[in-house]
């Protein structure tokens, strides 16, 4: 199967500082790929390169078949993105937010109409559709934010610590949404701090000091590090880190 993200010795330097050091990996279509690492390990920089926000210093990578150096515009059309900062407009209603994000991805009015209905029904927001997003609880906002990020049916959706500050029940519901999306064939590329979430991923990579130190399915990683949980695996690797905040 053709990989949807392919990185080969991808690096990013800022002056003398090597933020990302020759990382190589592949992600298959429909896969849920966990991208783990301590703060400052280089996750965000790597993700920004894959999203076309930052030009790599060296190495090669393709996202949805497009080159990260030259075809960033094509990449942007084929990905969705949800940042760790909550990214909907609080002073717009639920519907207006949906229409706006659909609009900037160039969805037609008919598509937009139909998709926003489906989305609102799926999230049970019928009564809130015309309310300002600012009045919703954080968990709902995050689910909405995620649904909006995949509104235009991208090939890949990048999630940057999407569940920060949310209670476990809502997180579980959030992951149900992620599975639904993956079943539709959308690849999910997710960074997280929560190790229980790492267990939900198909495969997980762990970055330490700019390099990928481990990459496999959660069961195999646990086996490899003879650990009981992903938490222990992560701790084992992150302990050796020189960079930390």
């Amino acid at each position: 199967m053709q990989a949807v993200i392919k990185a080969d010795k991808l690096s990013k330097h800022f002056g003398h500082f090597t933020a990302v050091n020759e990382i190589s990996f592949e992600v298959a279509p429909g896969e849920i790929f966990g991208f783990l690492g301590a703060n400052g390990a280089g996750k965000t920089t790597a993700m920004r390169m894959l999203c076309g926000l930052s030009i790599p210093t060296s190495g090669t990578a393709t996202v949805a078949g497009f080159d990260v150096y030259k075809q960033t515009e094509e990449i942007k059309k084929n990905i969705g993105y949800m940042s760790q900062k909550f990214s909907l407009y609080e002073d717009l209603t639920v519907l207006e937010n949906i229409r706006f994000y659909g609009g900037i991805y160039g969805l037609s009015d008919r598509d937009l109409q139909q998709k926003s209905e489906t989305l609102i029904t799926r999230l049970n927001l019928q009564n809130e559709a015309k309310k300002l997003v600012g009045s919703l609880p954080l968990g709902w906002k995050q689910k909405l934010s995620f649904s909006v990020a995949v509104l235009h049916e991208p090939k890949i959706v990048f999630l940057d610590e999407p569940t920060g500050g949310v209670d476990p029940v809502t997180r579980r519901q959030f992951w149900d949404l992620i599975y639904e999306v993956a079943d539709r064939g959308i690849t999910v590329f997710v960074t997280t701090h929560y190790m229980d979430e790492a267990e939900y991923c198909n495969r997980v990579s762990i970055m330490v000091d700019g390099s990928i130190e481990a990459l496999d399915t959660p069961p195999k990683l646990k086996q490899q590090f003879s650990a009981n949980s992903m938490d222990e695996v992560f701790y084992e690797l992150a302990r050796g880190a020189k960079r930390s905040e």
């Binding site: 999203c51 076309g52 926000l53 515009e73 942007k76 059309k77 990905i79 993105y81 940042s83 760790q84 900062k85 909550f86 990214s87 909907l88 407009y89 994000y101 900037i104 991805y105 160039g106 990048f158």
Partner: peptide, 10 residues
């Protein structure tokens, strides 16, 4: 953080 979303969009 919405600016970032704009920049990732086409």
């Amino acid at each position: 953080g919405t600016m970032e979303i704009m920049l990732v969009s086409p």
